[in-house]
Amino acid sequence: MPFQLNAPMQKHPELSDSAKHPVRILHVVGKMDRGGLETWLMRVLRSIDRQHFQIDIMVHSQAAGDYDPEVLALGCRILPCPYLTQPWRYAWEFKRVLSAYGPYDVVHSHVHFFSGYVLQIAKAAKVPCLIAHSHNDHRAIERSKNWLRQGYLSLMKRSISRSMTHGLTTSQQAALDLFGPAWVEDERINLLFSGLDLHPFVTEVAPDDVRQEWQIPADAWVIGHVGRFEPQKNHDFLVRVAAEAMHQHPNSYLLLVGQGSLQPQIERQVRALGIGDRVVFTGPRSDIAAILLGGMDAFLFPSIHEGLGVAIVEAQAAGLPCLISDVVPVEADVVPGLVRRLSLARSTVEWANALLTHSRNTPRKSVKETLPSLEASPFNMENTVPLLEALYAAAANQ
């Protein structure tokens, strides 16, 4: 009988007599930088019962990640396996890690299509529970790739289907990308929304305290965005929309939270648009809730593709009116009335007009209004972690 994520469960599931040792889990990620997946995984590490569950993280980079110090402080090991372009060496190193640091009860892979290779190796090593986790929807960009890439995707999808014992997905669109349309009939696959830690949103934040760090006037209207400076987040389009909105609303600023390879290009672009003195690049931040609550008045999110868009859920927790692209999964709409969607086929002027109109017509909500919707939802980390604990414990009991 397959494990069902919507089944009743205890907060800390008991292990059977044959599995009294801590359940050992190996998560596989690219690098522990501040991204949506990595931030969610950190919330899991902070919240999970570490007496019952012992977690290590395999990364595909030898460079240090933003979260590495905290990962180590929580008693987890970071195990590099950077040989993505050398499949045979990667397999050898992966097997060595499984042998030297295992045995593991669970391999939980977050590296999307490459999970096909990860889980194939782990299956050959007789790891009992193999989880493929889909956090994104790449279909819009993968359709245009050449035949070689298409062949790789087909091979990896078949390998995932043959190897995994469980599949998790942050949205229905993310499921379609990794598992295909048959996922709805596959009892191994379940939705698991990326949970938020809601506690930081309860803390009262003074806008003046937040804005003073970047010399943003207290009475300014601030457009905000949280996301990596990578093509998926569509910063080029975002800043052009913001520039048009700033032209119509002179006392306005743009606050960009995150880091990434395209940041230098975007910095040049805002200077060329003549808005460089009103655009703030904060870099990676650990105080996202405070910035959303005190630093922003509206949230702009024109992503080209998304698996869910956790930043949108966080913006709603902070009560912000949000204008987002219509490719963002509908599961991200949590607080009624705050989110408006628009096609990326619309012009930057239409986007700017929609942002201004939506902000004028949508009063900001207080956290007393937003948090009840989130506390009882699958986006609450306190509801998410017990689901994972039950899944991991079931694997150990088998």
Rank of each mutant, 00 (worst) to 15 (best):
G309D: 12
L41P: 12
R360Y: 08
N251I: 08
F379L: 00
L293N: 07
V335Q: 08
G283W: 09
G167M: 04
D177M: 13
D56Q: 02
V339I: 02
K31H: 00
V241H: 09
M246S: 03
W221F: 04
G151I: 11
N136S: 14
S194C: 12
L254H: 06
H358D: 06
G307K: 00
D219S: 10
L196C: 08
D49V: 01
E331L: 13
M164T: 12
A272F: 00
D17T: 12
D287S: 11
A64M: 08
S109Y: 09
N136H: 03
V97T: 15
I291V: 13
V367W: 14
Q54K: 14
D68V: 05
L374C: 08
L41V: 07
Q398K: 08
I189Q: 05
H358Q: 15
I312T: 06
S18D: 01
W40N: 05
L178S: 14
H12A: 08
A311F: 04
A352Q: 02
Q10A: 04
H135G: 10
Q232P: 00
C129G: 14
I223G: 06
V44D: 07
T348S: 00
R228F: 14
P284M: 15
R211L: 05
A175C: 11
N190D: 15
V106D: 01
R364G: 09
L356W: 00
V71R: 13
V210L: 01
N146E: 15
H27N: 04
R211I: 01
F201G: 02
R346N: 02
V226I: 15
H358S: 10
H21Y: 11
S115Q: 12
I312H: 03
V111Y: 14
G30W: 05
L45K: 14
P103C: 08
P336H: 04
S161M: 05
L262Y: 01
L15H: 13
M246D: 00
L338N: 04
P80S: 10
V349W: 10
P87K: 01
D56W: 07
D68K: 02
G65C: 13
A345E: 06
H247L: 11
V385F: 05
R24H: 06
A64H: 09
C76L: 07
R271V: 13
F193L: 13
W92P: 06
L15V: 06
M164P: 09
F281C: 01
V97I: 15
G30Q: 07
S347G: 10
S161G: 15
Q120Y: 12
A132F: 12
L292N: 01
M381D: 11
N6F: 09
W183P: 03
P378W: 02
L191M: 15
P22Y: 05
D208L: 14
D105P: 13
A242D: 04
G195P: 03
E93I: 14
R211V: 09
Q4C: 07
T170S: 04
G167S: 08
R96N: 14
F237Y: 13
A73M: 15
S109Q: 02
P336Q: 07
G274T: 10
S325W: 04
V310S: 00
V239N: 14
G274N: 12
K11S: 04
G307H: 08
H199W: 02
T39Y: 15
